[in-house]
Design a binder for these strands. Structure first.
Lengths: 238, 238
DNA sequence: ATTTGCATTATGTAGTACATAACTTCAATA
DNA sequence: TATTGAAGTTATGTACTACATAATGCAAAT
């Protein structure tokens, strides 16, 4: 029979590497010292000595910070803290085929949530110029039968909405989420074809932006995205 | 006078380190081979040889992947790809005092956008149990005069809203953004005291969740967050 | 047949050595 | 005097070696 019941179920011993510990220690150090971008941080040899590990380990930990854009190092000058690009760590992990289905769906939902929430910000920040651009994008929309450029146009329109917010972080986030979104919609299309389109289209959204209210825009965006929400509701039942 | 005008502004020569290149190469390798979580990846020595660099450099690159949770390595067994935790890289960079003001404001806005967009998802996923929990949270709200637990309660309520969506990624994202949000609201409070509160409070939001529609909830949430949006609109003018 | 012990293997860590780039100083030169 | 050039210094970047450690499989022992 199954012998597992006999065995006492100890927690497995987790072995943390020195690099991990050093990473944590240095992170705490930066936090505690309240170092700001531009401030110098100790030399590799100094860190190695005060932490009691080889320079090798120090460099493995520092390599992580370098990737995140938290530190920069120049020869002779030593290392300095830098203003990190917060999306850096995100970017490298967003490979659709590396993520499991549930995470992909989560991200898909996040995009819908963001888009539904854009209204206020857009109405606060929009300029006449933005509206003109949107109108141009809508004018140049490919015909309904032309499948090739449909996705391209879809991306251009929605991307512009994010851009209007003037929130570069938000916009960047959207761009990073794009591949995931396409990956999921592709699957979505596979299941229930033909792809349904919302009852509100891009030109109508632009019209609301020109003459309507945030309240109307929120509702319009919902109707635009409605098929996706329906799809989510179905997924929930399964 | 200022001599800078005389100087031709060349782009500075960027020197990429071997570790950076190796990181990129390995990343491409994983992508191209379409490796999935669980699949083994080449040994360090193999990588070192085929890429023509020392094992040291390989390990600095691999250290980055390890941090992101992209790979795990066990002695003797070698290294395997793992399902990455997409928030891992994010987490380590979100130190309020390391980010510049504009990024902090961006993140603050993102939180508002997310919260405004939650309505649909919440209405799709909510259960009777969730409503009960919200009612309990509201019942236990500290009195208006008790400043100490106000923030705590605020966090608990809004956090529960994210939880209702059943979207763990989204919920985790919110939790990561919390310190930033508090950092900004603190500053916000400094400027225009006393802190204004929206005309819609938590009990009203719960009531809408019970008997209302997503449309009403969106408007309710807007009224709840209105002071923050006003603050943003002011910031824009400055 | 189960356990024990040994050899094997890949990662983890330490240490040394040298290359490279950037900064400093100081002398030489126009 | 100001610019250039050379030499020395220093911290990071890279390579290489050596050994520790843990996991795995296989063979020997009971």
């Amino acid at each position: 029979m199954d012998r597992k019941e006999d065995q006492p179920d100890f927690e497995p011993i987790v072995t943390v590497t020195r690099a991990e510990i050093v990473e944590q220690r240095i992170h705490d150090f930066l936090k505690k010292k309240k170092l700001k971008p531009g401030d110098p941080i100790p030399k590799e040899t100094e860190l190695a000595e005060s932490l009691g590990v080889s320079r090798n380990v120090i460099r493995e930990a520092l390599s992580r910070f370098r990737m995140l854009g938290l530190i920069e190092s120049r020869k002779k000058r030593g290392m300095i803290l830098t203003k990190p690009d917060i999306m850096n760590g995100f970017e490298r992990v967003l490979e659709p085929h590396l993520l499991d289905r549930s995470t992909l769906l989560d991200i898909f939902e996040m995009r819908l949530v963001l888009e539904m929430g854009l209204a206020e910000l857009i109405f606060i920040k929009k300029t006449k110029n933005d509206i003109s651009t949107l109108e141009r994008i809508v004018r140049n929309a490919p015909s309904l039968h032309d499948v090739r450029f449909k996705l391209e146009h879809e991306v251009e329109f929605h991307s512009k909405l994010y851009e209007i917010t003037g929130n570069e972080t938000l916009h960047r986030f959207q761009r990073l989420l794009l591949p995931i979104f396409q990956f999921v919609t592709q699957e979505e299309a596979h299941l229930n074809k033909p792809p349904k389109t919302g009852i509100v289209d891009h030109p109508q959204l632009v019209e609301i932006l020109k003459t309507g209210t945030p309240l109307e825009f929120r509702q319009g965006m919902y109707n635009h995205l409605e098929p996706h929400f329906e799809w989510i509701a179905e997924q929930k039942k399964i």
